[in-house]
Design a protein around this nucleic acid. Structure first.
Lengths: 200, 200
DNA sequence: AGACAATGACCGGTCAGTCGGTCATTATTA
DNA sequence: TAATAATGACCGACTGACCGGTCATTGTCT
């Protein structure tokens, strides 16, 4: 019993260490020994918990996506009105820019892995799933708005893809150059433009 | 004289080969020997033209950005009306999705390099420059529209960033899953929503 | 003692970058 | 013109560094 708890805790500790090292050095440059050091354990121990570097990376992605999802669910739980929901969604997204910054920094490495290599199918599948999931989540909001008449009749999935794309692109620009724009002003500008584009 | 021409041609040939190999295998997985093979030359010769793998990558980026810019300039040369210009800009962007697909596939590796390593400043500077340039280009269009009264008074740079972010995000989603959405329908949806969001 | 967890020295494969040598082309000399 | 010399583009076998993954040993707990 206590063994199981320890195992899980240590697993998460390694994942956190991996997050730090991967985001600092990038997936390829990062060394497993460094992850172990960050977690305060020996290199061999990492392999007690993860089959390989690839596996660790894959699990890290899964872990972070699940945490992100939890954050969204919590923050959006009590909103009902489609337009408020959308506004809130964008607000939360911008908060994640800061809170999950290391995760987004890794994301490109993850993406890059998805395109090639022996494990590419695994990576690709996970990536598609993650996208597809969030796409449908937002599409549901838009659908509800269209049905309720507060949005004009747009294709929910298409619009959803567009909004998500915008958020993705913005985090990229921002991570690349924090001076590019002010996060708060951009959030307002995006919210306004999205709602305007959906006005009946 | 003829030697110089040959040198330049071969340089470009190596860059093209690098484009093929890097986009197929990813920057890290790609081997210089493979680039040489693709270019039909020996490995050592690559190093006659480029100091290092990093250098080759950096020059490849510069080469492609310059080609992309040329394509945009050519396609947008004769349009004057801000709203037509914006519509045309989006159209051209979607065309580049297909035409420059290998370049976009590499982009994430490039981005990833920009965050770390010994050459990170070089990568970062180039990335910032490229973004800043396109941002200002689009901002000019919007500015003109605002002045002419065909767009509502928005912050041109902020709006420009948002539109570019959307395009970036869309190419990512599309490269990740070609079935995610139909390119043509998405182009129309994006054009409509951008113009609606700018209507006075 | 027995079971199990942790460790880090070591192994083997990989690959960027080097370097000594080849060869085709051009310049020089007789 | 023909023989010889000089040039530099081209090459690929080789090297040294690097690092993921292993496993024999050591430590810890019951």
């Amino acid at each position: 019993m206590s063994i199981i708890v320890d195992k899980t805790k240590k697993r998460v500790a390694i994942l956190k260490a991996a997050m730090v090292v991967f985001s600092r050095d990038g997936y390829h440059r990062a060394r497993i020994e460094e992850v172990a050091k960050e977690a305060g354990i020996g290199k061999g121990t990492v392999y007690e918990y993860f089959r390989s570097k690839t596996d660790l990376f894959l699990d890290l992605h899964e872990h972070m996506v699940s945490e992100l999802k939890g954050f969204y669910l919590k923050e959006l739980a009590e909103v009902r009105e489609p337009d408020l929901l959308l506004e809130r969604f964008i607000k939360v997204a911008f908060e994640t820019f800061r809170l999950w910054e290391p995760f987004f920094l890794i994301f490109f490495d993850f993406w890059s892995q998805g395109g090639r290599g022996e494990h590419q199918e695994l990576f690709q599948t996970r990536l598609k799933q993650a996208y597809s999931l969030s796409r449908e989540e937002v599409a549901t909001i838009i659908s509800a708005g269209v049905t309720a008449g507060s949005f004009r009749p747009v294709d929910p999935l298409l619009t959803s893809s567009r909004i998500l794309a915008c958020l993705d692109g913005l985090v990229v620009q921002w991570l690349c150059d924090r001076q590019a724009f002010d996060l708060d002003r951009m959030r307002d500008e995006l919210t306004t433009s999205v709602l305007r584009s959906l006005r009946p």
